[in-house]
Design a protein around this nucleic acid. Sequence first.
DNA 1: GAATCGACTTGTTGGCATACAC
DNA 2: GTGTATGCCAACAAGTCGATTC
Length: 602
Amino acid sequence: MNPNHCHCCIYVLIVDKLINPRFTQFISAFVYRFECKPKKVKVEHDRKAQKRKHEYTDGSKWRFLEHKGPVFAPPYEPLPDKVRFYYDGKPMKLSAPAEEVATFFSKMLDHEYTTKDIFRKNFFKDWRKEMTSEEKSKITDLNKCDFTEMNEYFKAQSEARKQMSKEEKQKIKEENERLVQEYGFCIMDNHKERIGNFRIEPPGLFRGRGDHPKMGMLKRRIRPEDIIINCSKDSKHPKPPPGTKWKEVRHDNKVTWLASWTENIQGSIKYIMLNPSSRIKGEKDWQKYETARRLKKCVDRIRTQYRDDWKSKEMRIRKTALALRAGNEKEEGETADTVGCCSLRVEHVKLYPKMDDQEYVVEFDFLGKDSIRYYNKIPVEKRVFKNLQLFLENKQPEDDLFDRLNTSILNKHLQELMDGLTAKVFRTYNASITLQQQLKELTCPDDSIPAKILSYNRANRAVAILCNHQRAPPKTFEKSMQNLQTKIEEKQNQLSAARKQLKVAKSDHKASHDDKSKKAVEVKRKAVQRIEEQLMKLQVQATDREENKQIALGTSKLNYLDPRISVAWCKKWGVGIEKIYNKTQREKFAWAIDMAEKDYEF
DNA sequence: GAATCGACTTGTTGGCATACAC
DNA sequence: GTGTATGCCAACAAGTCGATTC
């Protein structure tokens, strides 16, 4: 038996365990239904599938593509003479290229970045490349550079922008709008589609995330000569700015991008692509969730299979994590030191035969994507634990935990279990199934709309926690929480006052029995009701905000949760879709809003 | 079969417009 | 009308994963 195969079996097993032990029972109880309105929707699915099949049999993504090319960053405007740079206490006029790079640094003076050694070192090295030889010989020590005047100038500029009159602001807005109208759309196969990012990234200093070894390096200005344009032959080709040329114009309909260039920091390619609301992105998204639904159908089989495998082979690598990303290898020294499942090292796990009242606990502690810390303690089966122990033996902290396993081997194995299955499908599947299950569990039919929305957010939160989507508590969190609390107290006072008034009105009515006093009672009763509702809303808001302190919901909502689950939930409970999705999200998920009925099942 | 490349998705952040409180 | 908190969105970094190259 292929030893790699074994690694993967164990991997998938623990994946399940890690994510949510309750899944097993839930899934076994699950009866899969393709759609609530089988006939109608099936036809729709078939038609879409047919269309796709028709379009993509040759692997092409479009037949016709026309656009106007990217918008370049505005050229550098030299500083006015009164704004000076000082070296070693003396003013010094810089050449335009050196000055431009200096302004990048000066704009960041308030940021912690500029105090970091690596950042300063990288910046200085790249800055010197832009200097004239004279400047180079003079400016030899970054610590002797004084950018404060430049910094103040830019602050004043941004202040002035804020102080602009309404008319001026309106003018800028209109100019912007014009640019969007001209460059922000393309024609792809008879459809006018919005482009996601039609502006070329302006030059600046690279700020990586976490401890990035390249932070501070100069991101150079992109010129038309760096740009590859992609469009169809029979379209009106975009014109480069006067006096310039594109690097290349190609007609590759096997890809979806409109323009690309190679950035100079990592040497990777950047693309101009369509907005998420576009047909091409929407279909891909839909397809992603369909794959996750297929996994749902066969997850039981996969589980049984790897469990069997696992029982028969004793001394095998135990592989961990599903909520975890796959974790590709990365070049050392090229990026920040972050890991995923396949690249976990010995130093990232600790084993506890007993912890509190649980046995066989594995503790994970490592930096994941974007250098976000993943910390979790997970009880595992004894056998898994023992194997992990074996695994750690005779290894140094910096050794790989799972040698002989990488994402390619893992995904190849997963592919064998189910067509189209990769590690990230598990993430999508688990997120979506959790949302659906949590919504079922948390939604009370008798709740008010705000309470239902709270339940929705709680379900969403459960997913975000599962996926480790953390955020730093907002800087103004405590204050805004306090404000809300004050409002609640005020509302409570208001309520008791209103109740008193109602009481008075009632006794007045009892005494007089006239129409006027009857009306007064009604008015007061309504007032009490209204205030009660307002108070409840505030309280729900406070709970929601408090629970959301360190959790970011956006990422899971946008990338992991089958939108049809949310749409169905809204339809079922009469909650407006705009309470759950904002405008952009509604545009992105238009296909789902269109497709899902109230009894859609993931 | 490892390394690299290319295309595309996922993720966080910060600036800005807008809603809201006063 | 003005100041401030909030949510939205663009920007862009950092992943995943399949294809290609060595």
